[in-house]
């Protein structure tokens, strides 16, 4: 028996919106720790890791560890039946091939019961070691999203350079080139507007903007984004989900021949 209840149902809608453009199908791992997922995009270039800890739910019951294979697109379709202020309950029983979503309006005057078919998904699980990064940039998530969107209209790749001067995002395309530098700014009164750069070593890495822009679909989950970089390693772009966990994206860099 697996059952979870999330009062802030819109959170699940936003989480699914944040991953649906990157992965088609994924196994959701259910355990007493929480509800989690690790899935790669079809080209094995990017990965999303989601964690929603059990303590963050109003009610969380998971009698044994198991995985539920779901089509993210179908899940997004089912979640369209939920209003933003609905309370969401997800239920699954052992040995069944369906999952039930229940959406309750806050005043309890409307209850929707939705059943979705589960899938058998054969997926590779990657072992991601805890790593020390050469540079960690924390900045407003909306700022990061706007930079990626602006650079996407000029080029296909973004080079992220962290130095003493700050963090520079640059691109080059047929029509020209552009670079945007953000300096450390921790003096702001609002912590969500701060840009903080922790640098052990200068780094310079190039990534496909197509993927980075997809990651910014998680912007509504967190006011801040953390970008962790090391030379010749995948970047980690993390959006924390208050009280519950995180959505982390990993992207392999572009490398020279």
């Amino acid at each position: 028996m697996f059952e979870l209840r999330l009062v802030q149902g819109s959170l699940l809608k936003r989480v699914i919106d944040a991953i649906k453009d990157l992965v088609n199908d994924a196994n959701f791992d259910c355990s007493s720790t929480g509800f989690s997922l690790q899935a790669m995009d079809s080209s094995h270039v990017a990965l999303v890791a989601l964690l929603l800890r059990s303590e963050g739910f109003e009610h969380f019951r998971c009698d044994r560890t198991f995985s539920m294979g779901m089509s993210i697109a179908n899940m997004a379709k089912m979640l369209k039946c939920a209003s933003n202020d609905d309370i969401i309950t997800i239920k699954a029983d052992d040995g069944t091939d369906t999952v039930t979503f229940m959406f309750e309006s806050p005043s309890q005057d409307k209850i929707s019961d939705i059943e979705m078919k589960l899938m058998d998904i054969d997926s590779d699980h990657l072992g991601i070691p805890d790593a020390e990064y050469d540079a960690i940039v924390r900045m407003p998530s909306s700022e990061f999203s706007s930079i990626c969107s602006s650079l996407s209209s000029i080029g296909d790749t973004v080079t992220i350079t962290v130095s003493k001067q700050g963090v520079t995002f640059s691109t080059k395309g047929d029509i020209g080139s552009g670079n945007i530098t953000c300096r450390q700014n921790s003096s702001t009164e609002k912590p969500e507007e701060a840009t903080i750069i922790e640098m052990k070593e200068p780094v310079c890495l190039t990534f496909a903007l197509k993927y980075i822009t997809t990651f910014t679909k998680a912007t509504s989950l967190s006011s801040q984004v953390t970008i962790s970089l090391s030379s010749d390693m995948p970047v980690v772009v993390e959006y924390k989900i208050a009280e519950m966990g995180h959505v982390r994206y990993y992207l392999a860099p572009k490398i020279g021949e």
């Binding site: 790669m40 080209s43 094995h44 270039v45 990017a46 990965l47 590779d124 699980h125 990657l126 072992g127 991601i128 070691p129 790749t157 190039t206 496909a208 390693m233 995948p234 990993y250 392999a252 860099p253 572009k254 490398i255 020279g256 021949e257």
Partner: peptide, 14 residues
């Protein structure tokens, strides 16, 4: 030129 590396190049599959 530059080419796109894969995650499996850095992380092991289990």
């Amino acid at each position: 030129g530059i080419f796109q590396s894969r995650l499996t190049h850095y992380f092991r599959t289990h």
